[in-house]
Amino acid sequence: MTATRRRLPVLAAAAVAAAAAVWVLFLATDTPAGTVLDEPGAFVVTALDAVTFAGLLFVAASGFTLIFGLMRTVNMAHGSLFLLAAYVAVGVQQAMVGKTRNIDASEVGIADWLVPMLAGATAAAVVGTVIQQVFLQWNEGQELRQALITLAITVVLADQMLREFGGLAQRMVWPGAVTHFITIFGQRYATTRLFMLGVAVVIGVLLWLWLNRTRLGMVVRAGVDDRQMVRGLGINIRLVFAVVFFAGAFLAGVGGVLGASFAGAAPGTDGAWLLNSLVVVIIGGLGSIKGAAAGSLLYGTVVAFSPAYLPSQYSFYAIILTFGLLALVLAVRPYGLYGRPA
């Protein structure tokens, strides 16, 4: 491959990014949001939407990428764990508040949200660990077989959750203390989205501290780089695998509870969030936490900006832009932004 051929996709990507910026700044007059010069408020709100949604994406995708990074297991049941945690949390919250429907935010204290979140995430983590111990522990290294096994588990779990929790959408209620509106550039904005971003940031920081400041995190990072060597040093990698799978499934669960508070949970949510996690890690690079953060931001930006800044009669085409982002990133880096062919 010659240097020019290699540089061509990078130049194309830069040109597309520049064109998008110029469009949003000056040209997007016929769109729901309007240009930045005319409607700065709409731009700020869209940008906030992008960042807050990216926070949710990061929580969901970081667990997926953590598991892959260490074990090379593509956990196709990630979306199912996401949905399972959401259902469990909704059930616990209803029990704690004492009402099954029409729960108002004012009736929900912080504990009525935090305890269900921990319960839901723990349920997902336990189920995930059982899946890992029963179905994935003995066939380590057979990547495709593991992916197909988790796909089959997804089909079974989706059907069983439909039986258990029904087909209607259920919603987790944000605590009343964070349910307000603030005014930004003349636009009302829900503080619950900022709270969601806050939770995501806290999780990101904790994850970083765990991986970079603890002994176990050090082993995990070493395992990502060279599993054989870690094994050779006498570390019980089986235990490390189980702990990481627990943590990854727990993260899926936290994502599920945030998602259920943000947009509700229903059959199909599992598939949608498997897709979201896949898109994020394909863009960011499988196995890289940094990549998950970058992928979440890029994907969140496209998801938030494309309906707002496409001409009104073309807003339905927003999904094509997601595909365009994917195509652009893969053309430049086939293994994602921070992925490496290891």
């Binding site: 495709l144 498997l274 897709l275 896949l278 997601t322 994917l326 195509a327 086939p334």
Partner: peptide, 21 residues
């Protein structure tokens, strides 16, 4: 053409994304 530089698991994931998109 877009997927031609990947194989294995990456191919599986990328084509799943195609399907959903």
């Amino acid at each position: 053409a877009l997927a031609s530089r990947t194989t294995g698991l990456y191919y599986l994931m990328l084509t799943l994304v195609y399907a959903v998109i």
